[in-house]
C-alpha cells in the first residue's frame, strides 16, 4: 500500500462571501498522476494554491507529504515543485541565471541537463521575455523539477506547447512518476488528462462531483457508445431501420452514425442487417465515450453528445 502524499479532508476556501471550494475531500498516493478538472471558477486554482502553501484554507485539513502547507511551509518548499500558470519569472532573467538562482535557494546543484533536455540549452543566455511562450513554459517546468520534488504541481503545463514538446513533457511526467514523484495536473485539456492521469477529480461550482480513474468516470455517464459504419451500397442510410439499444442515428460523409447504450446487441443486429441486404461492410468504428464527453455531460448537461 503506497503512502498518501496528499490528504484533503473537508477543505473549504472562501473569499469574503464567495465560496471557492466547499467540503472537498480526496487523497493522492505516492507515484500517482492525479488530474484536477473543472470549468473556470470551479475551485481548481484555489485548491492548488492552498496545497502549495500560497493561501490558507478557511476550513478542513490539508496535508502535503505529511506536512501542513501553511504552518510547515519552510519544510515543504524543498519537497514540492510548482509550475504556476503565470510565468512567474523576471523579464530579464536568462535560463542559465534562473537555473543557478532557483537551485541555489533549494540548496542543490544547477540542473543544466534539464535545459538541454527541454531544448533550451541554445537559449541559455537569452532573456526570458525574448523566449517563445513554449520555451518560457519549458523553462518554468525545468525549474519546478530541478530539485527532484516528491510532489509536482502542474497548472496547465502544455498550454501553448507544440506537439513535440507536449510529447517530451508527457515523457518527463512518466519518468518522474516511475521515480516515485506524485504529480497533480490541473488542465483543461481532457485528452491530456485522460491519457496521463491515473485518477481524476472533477470539480463543479466549488464541489467535487466525480472522482476515479478516467475509465471509471467515463463508465458512469449516460454510457452511449458511438458506432460509425460505412457500407458498399449504403444500405444503412435508408430511414426507419431500428437496431437494439440505439438512441440516436445520424448520417455524415457516407457514414451512418449510431449512439448505443449496449453495443453487443446493436453490432450483432447491424451486421446481420447488412448481410441480409447483400451489402458489404467497408469501415466500422466504435468509440467509447471520452473523458471530454463525460466532462461535458457533468459540467454542461445537454451539450454532451
Amino acid at each position: 500500500m503506497k503512502n498518501s502524499m496528499i490528504e484533503v479532508e473537508d477543505f473549504r476556501k472562501t473569499y469574503g462571501n464567495y465560496v471557492a471550494v466547499d467540503g472537498l475531500s480526496f487523497d493522492v498516493k505516492q507515484g500517482e498522476i492525479f488530474g484536477l478538472l473543472g470549468p473556470n471558477g470551479a475551485g481548481k486554482t484555489s485548491t492548488l494554491e492552498c496545497l502549495e502553501g500560497l493561501r490558507a484554507p478557511n476550513g478542513g485539513s490539508l496535508r502535503v507529504v505529511g506536512l501542513n502547507p501553511v504552518s510547515e511551509f519552510r519544510k515543504l518548499r524543498n519537497l514540492i515543485g510548482v509550475q504556476l500558470q503565470s510565468a512567474g519569472l523576471p523579464e530579464s532573467i536568462t535560463p542559465d541565471e534562473a537555473m543557478k538562482f532557483f537551485c541555489a535557494y533549494h540548496n542543490v546543484a544547477p540542473r543544466f541537463d534539464l535545459l538541454e533536455r527541454l531544448g533550451l540549452i541554445e537559449k541559455r543566455n537569452t532573456q526570458f521575455y525574448e523566449l517563445s511562450a513554449g520555451q518560457q513554459r519549458r523553462l518554468v517546468l525545468a525549474l519546478a523539477v530541478a530539485h527532484n520534488p516528491q510532489v509536482l504541481f502542474l497548472d496547465e503545463p502544455t498550454a501553448g506547447l507544440d506537439v513535440a514538446t507536449r510529447v517530451e513533457l508527457h515523457g518527463m511526467m512518466r519518468e518522474l512518476q516511475a521515480g516515485g514523484t506524485t504529480v497533480i495536473l490541473a488542465t483543461h485539456d481532457m485528452a491530456e488528462a485522460e491519457e496521463m492521469s491515473d485518477r481524476v477529480a472533477i470539480l463543479l461550482q466549488s464541489r467535487l462531483v466525480n472522482i476515479g480513474t478516467p475509465m471509471e468516470i467515463t463508465a458512469t455517464g449516460a454510457g452511449l457508445t458511438k458506432i460509425s459504419v460505412r457500407t458498399q451500397a449504403s444500405s444503412l442510410s435508408a430511414s426507419g431501420i431500428a437496431f437494439p439499444a440505439v438512441s440516436q442515428h445520424t448520417l455524415k460523409d457516407e457514414y451512418s452514425i449510431y449512439f448505443s447504450s449496449d453495443i453487443g446487441p446493436t453490432l450483432s443486429a447491424m451486421i446481420a442487417y447488412i448481410d441480409a441486404q447483400g451489402d458489404t461492410l467497408i469501415d466500422l468504428r466504435v468509440e467509447r465515450p471520452s473523458l471530454e464527453d463525460r466532462f461535458l455531460e457533468i459540467t454542461n448537461p445537454g451539450v454532451a453528445q
Binding site: 502553501g53 519552510r74 514540492i80 503565470s86
Partner: peptide, 20 residues
C-alpha cells in the same frame, strides 16, 4: 515599479514557492 510588476505578474508567488 519593478516591485509592483513582479507582484502583479506572480513573480513573488514563484519566489515564495522556491523559498526565496
Amino acid at each position: 515599479d519593478p516591485l509592483v510588476n513582479a507582484r502583479e505578474n506572480g513573480i513573488f508567488r514563484s519566489y515564495k514557492i522556491n523559498g526565496i
